[in-house]
Structures are given as structure tokens and as C-alpha cells.
């Protein structure tokens, strides 16, 4: 394809090319696996498949959805569930802030940026940051929309598979499905933890959380975040100061 034909792509063609790119990305496999796991959890905690599909479209954040399902399923107060979801969603802010300058043009209305912001998640963000820079600016918005919405296809398919598998497999295998979320979150979070402070927060949190739960502390998710995050940050500051 020559540059002339690339830049001549209509918005619809750019959108479709985004969808196609998402379906051939490695993240499509990640989405399938992640949502098989989330769906198994949703089934076990008594949420319907329609509710999960709505949650996927409205939240579009794997960790946030697992937090919401787990917190509500364990009978946490709604306020704590909302706070935990809110804290976990924080990582979306720097993603949106770094993505939008790549797709915005002088003529782009702010309203047109709401969809790409809504479908921003780790999968779409990583692929966009890699694929957008060499692309003509006028087709980036449609391409990004196609990419983000395309990743929702394997997510919904994974949900469908997980929901029915967990109800029909032998118990050792359903335990395996329920284990998918904690296992994949542990490795993907430590992979995404670029700085020492993030790795420390993860490690300290894994130790603090069971202690707080053992002590039957109220709002344990929130306290785990604050204690582990602040302790990690304090160590980070100490190290900086000693340099």
C-alpha cells in the first residue's frame, strides 16, 4: 500500500482497519482469557450474564470489574466498593492524557474524544501508542475507535464461554477458571509496574491484605491500598533522599 492510498482511507475504512488490527493482536487472546475468568467470578457471585455484558461496556476495565464483583459479592458496603473501583481506575488517567494528543486535530471537537477516552484500557492504549505515530493524523480517531471497540468482541465471547464453562465443568477445572483472575492480575500488574514504588506497593499489599482481613478490619480494600501505597511511597522517598 502506498502512502497516498493510506492517507485516502475513509473514516469507515480506518475504523474497520482498527477492528481488524484488534482481532489479530495478541491482546485478543488476553481479553478472551481475562473475561473467561471474570465471567466465572460473576457467575459464582450470582451476577447475570447481561449484567456482566453491561459492566464490560460501561466500565471496560478488567481489574475494576473484578473489584466491583468481588466487593459486592463479599458484601462490602457500596461506598467501599465505589472507592476501591475509583482507586483502581486511576491508572486510566495517564493513559487518556497521553493518548488524546496523538489523535486530536485542531478541528476535533471535545465531544468526539469522549468515545476514545471511554474505550481506553491497557490493551488499546499499548497498541495505539505503537501504531498511531506513523499513521496519517486524519484517520487516527476512527482507527482508535475501531481498535478499542474491536477488543470488546473477544471480551464478550470470553464472558459467554466462562459463564457456561464454570457451570458445567468438573470442580477442579472451575477452580482453575476462578483462579485465572488473581493469577493473571498478579503477573500483569507486576509487568506493568515500571517503577520500584509500584512493585513495592504490590508486594506490601499482598502481605497487608490478609492481615487486615484476618483482623476483620472494615474497609480493608481501601486500607490495603492506603497502607501499602504510602509505605511503598515512603521507601521510595527515603531511597531518593539517600542518593
Amino acid at each position: 500500500m502506498s502512502d497516498a492510498t493510506v492517507s485516502a482511507l475513509s473514516p469507515a475504512a480506518a475504523f474497520l482497519s482498527g477492528v481488524k488490527t484488534s482481532l489479530t493482536s495478541i491482546y485478543t487472546l488476553v481479553m478472551l482469557g481475562t473475561f473467561v475468568g471474570i465471567s466465572a467470578l460473576a457467575h459464582d457471585y450470582g451476577f447475570s450474564l447481561w449484567w456482566l455484558a453491561a459492566a464490560t461496556m460501561l466500565m471496560w476495565a478488567g481489574p475494576g470489574q473484578v473489584i466491583l464483583i468481588t466487593a459486592l459479592g463479599h458484601g462490602s458496603p457500596l461506598f467501599e466498593a465505589a472507592l476501591a473501583v475509583c482507586l483502581s481506575g486511576l491508572r486510566l488517567l495517564p493513559m487518556v492524557v497521553t493518548l488524546l494528543p496523538l489523535i486530536r486535530r485542531p478541528a476535533t471537537r471535545t465531544a468526539a474524544l469522549l468515545l476514545p477516552a471511554h474505550i481506553t484500557a491497557i490493551s488499546m492504549w499499548v497498541e495505539s501508542m505503537r501504531l498511531l505515530p506513523p499513521m496519517p493524523r486524519e484517520q487516527r480517531l476512527a482507527f482508535t475507535n475501531g481498535l478499542g471497540l474491536g477488543f470488546m468482541i473477544p471480551a464478550h465471547i470470553g464472558s459467554l464461554i466462562g459463564y457456561y464453562l464454570v457451570a458445567s465443568l468438573p470442580s477442579a477445572l472451575t477452580a482453575g477458571l476462578l483462579f485465572l483472575s488473581p493469577m493473571s492480575f498478579l503477573v500483569s500488574t507486576s509487568r506493568n509496574a515500571r517503577m520500584l514504588v509500584d512493585r513495592l506497593a504490590l508486594g506490601i499489599g499482598l502481605v497487608v491484605a490478609p492481615l487486615l482481613a484476618y483482623g476483620q478490619i472494615q474497609l480493608d480494600l481501601m486500607w490495603t491500598g492506603i497502607i501499602a501505597g504510602s509505605a511503598a511511597y515512603a521507601i521510595h522517598r527515603l531511597r531518593e533522599a539517600m542518593r
Binding site: 468481588t70 491500598g225 492506603i226
Partner: peptide
């Protein structure tokens, strides 16, 4: 804030 958010995620992993 990012460290706190990571801590919350660790809490969820431990809970599960």
C-alpha cells in the same frame, strides 16, 4: 496515587 491504586489491586488479588 498510583502506588495506592496498585495496593488496592494487590488487596483484590489477596482477597480472591
Amino acid at each position: 496515587l498510583r502506588a495506592v491504586a496498585t495496593g488496592v489491586l494487590a488487596g483484590v488479588i489477596a482477597k480472591l
